[in-house]
């Protein structure tokens, strides 16, 4: 058997891997937005519960969080009398969304708080409503401050997706193990190498997208266009 035959096999698991990643990115972002808002505004009791959630997401090993989601969610829905609909894939999505949301809220909240108090004062004194102030002044500046941290959180997420095989979701990592067992472990190194390239590519693409937004953010006039700057960044990175 040819080594390269396993590549399409591995890639067949990519859609599920990406689906888990994207779900966690989208749901995690929404969770983080709500969590940061509640933690900044300090609503009694609710904010304390959110604090608890964030420290859970940030301090419990991700693989443990996945087990908690996998074994805990069926118990939770049973409590409400619903049938168990949690496949490993859904549990992986829920578990990673919760992890990513908690982690990301600790990127968003400091970014918001890092915006100079004077920017709030200026907008308030000019009669901006809270919404106008957030959307036009404070939000864009917080995004600029938070983007590098956001990029890191996405890369951690991609790495942690590799853990979903422990609860039986068939991502690229799990598929790689299936292939290796079936082929009597003769191509272990090659398989892991291909896997490494797949992960590196996913991270690179994520990084490029975020870098693009970083360079586009209007805190200073762009001296070079975003694309040429990305090119320079790539060269200096390589």
């Amino acid at each position: 058997m040819d080594v390269s035959a396993m590549i399409p096999e591995l890639l067949s698991a990519l859609p599920l891997t990406l689906a888990i990643t994207f779900t966690a990115i989208v749901v995690g972002f929404c969770l983080a937005l709500v969590a940061s808002t509640l933690r900044i505004r300090r609503v009694p009791v609710i904010s304390n519960l959110v604090d608890l959630y964030v420290s859970y997401a940030r301090s419990v090993p991700v693989v443990l969080q996945l087990f908690v989601a996998f074994y805990g969610l069926p118990l939770l829905v049973a409590l409400f009398g619903a049938a168990d609909f949690f496949s490993p894939n859904v549990a992986a999505m829920v578990g990673l969304s919760l992890y990513h949301g908690g982690y990301l809220s600790e990127v968003m909240r400091p970014a918001y708080l890092a915006v100079d108090r004077g920017q709030h004062d200026a907008a308030d004194s000019l009669g901006y409503t809270f919404r106008q102030k957030i959307f036009r002044i404070v939000g864009p500046q917080a995004i600029h401050i938070g983007l590098p941290g956001y990029g890191n959180s996405i890369i951690y997420l991609i790495h942690n997706v590799a853990l979903v095989m422990y609860i039986g979701a068939a991502d690229v990592m799990a598929t790689a193990h299936l292939i290796m067992e079936r082929d009597y472990n003769q191509y272990q190194f090659e398989t892991y190498l291909v896997l490494a390239v797949i992960y590196a590519l996913m991270c690179l693409i994520a990084w490029l997208i975020i870098r693009f937004f970083e360079l586009r953010s209007p805190m200073q006039a762009p001296e070079a266009t975003a694309t040429t700057q990305i090119k320079h960044a790539l060269i200096s990175n390589a």
Partner: peptide
């Protein structure tokens, strides 16, 4: 607030906008 305007010790010019946008934005938005 609509009838007063403040000039700050630390300037507090909106950092995400050009000079022109800084001056225009309150007129358009508020």
């Amino acid at each position: 607030r609509l009838r007063t305007a403040m000039v700050f010790q630390q300037f507090n010019v909106f950092k995400n906008m050009t000079v022109l946008q800084n001056v225009m934005d309150p007129l358009v938005v508020v």
